[in-house]
């Protein structure tokens, strides 16, 4: 039964309930589930975090490795965000070549981080044009109960903020055993995260459960951080066949900084 798709009956019920501002679990339309963040999922990682949003759980690990800079940016290190939708996490995930959702998730997290400039890639150069640090941000959903993108983005920045540069041994090789105290160079006051607005009928909801997410007809995800102390939108992507109106964009934009403030406060309290 767990793999059954959402029925039309449920979709219609949800459409009506959302229009009245109600949800099955009693939350308000823009209310997040309980957010819990833990660290040190793996002592082998340079930084790691576990995020829970209700029953949704994502673990994020940071690894650092030597890389070659891209030819068009010899003075910059590399950032690589990947995700694997493990069949462990949901009856809907299957082994095999990545589908659209598996491609989109890391790309959205990547763009939110990259465009915010929280990582100054120029600080990751070891030898210009030849050797740089590559920061790997690896996202693994452990249990998918909706809103994976936002949860993964919270986990990614939490893990990054705790990540340290590895030490090098006398031959210049990476020593993954001993942890250094040198943090990965990040802008202190910037913490990019994403918020996804899901649309069903004329209602916009945040942090959907899997059921709510599957019933929805479109999604729009915004990456947001701060620039010179003010909230700054860094990325945006619409998903799905339904459209978003000018009014809905205005509504989302007035809610976005409020939600950002709220989650940011929580993130800061655990970092």
């Amino acid at each position: 039964m767990s793999s059954m798709e959402v029925t039309n009956l449920t979709r219609e019920k949800l459409r009506k309930m959302f229009a009245e501002g109600k949800r099955f679990d009693g939350r308000k339309l823009d209310e997040f589930r309980d957010l819990k963040i833990e660290f040190d999922v793996s002592n082998q990682a340079e930084g790691s975090a576990r995020v829970r949003l209700g029953k949704t759980e994502v673990v994020v690990g940071i690894k650092l490795g030597f890389g070659e800079p891209y030819p068009d940016s010899p003075d910059k290190g590399n950032l690589m965000v990947s995700a694997d939708l493990l069949p462990l996490a949901s009856p809907r995930f299957e082994h095999g070549p990545p589908g659209f959702n598996a491609i989109e998730l890391p790309r959205l997290v990547d763009r939110a981080i990259r465009a915010s400039d929280v990582i100054n890639l120029s600080d990751l150069v070891i030898e210009e044009g030849k050797k740089v640090w590559t920061v790997f941000v690896d996202l693994y959903p452990i249990n998918d109960d909706g809103n994976l993108i936002d949860a993964a983005s919270f986990g990614a920045i939490a893990a990054l903020k705790k990540a340290v540069l590895p030490l090098l041994d006398k031959d210049g090789k990476i020593d993954h055993k001993t942890k250094s105290t040198n943090p990965v160079p990040l802008a202190k006051d910037i913490a990019p995260i994403s918020f996804s607005f899901f649309k069903l009928g004329d209602s916009l909801i945040l942090d959907p459960t899997r059921e709510e997410q599957e019933a929805s007809e479109a999604r729009i995800t915004f990456g947001i951080s701060t620039f010179e102390g003010k909230p700054m939108v860094n990325s945006c992507q619409k998903y799905g066949e339904d459209l978003f109106s000018q009014e809905e964009i205005e509504k989302a934009m007035s809610l976005l900084p409020v939600k950002f403030e709220e989650i940011n406060k929580k993130l800061k309290s655990v970092l």
Binding site: G223, F227, M232, S235, K238, L243, S245
Partner: peptide, 10 residues
Amino acid sequence: SFSLMQMDGK
């Protein structure tokens, strides 16, 4: 209404 929105930057 908009059927495509994709952005990055500030």
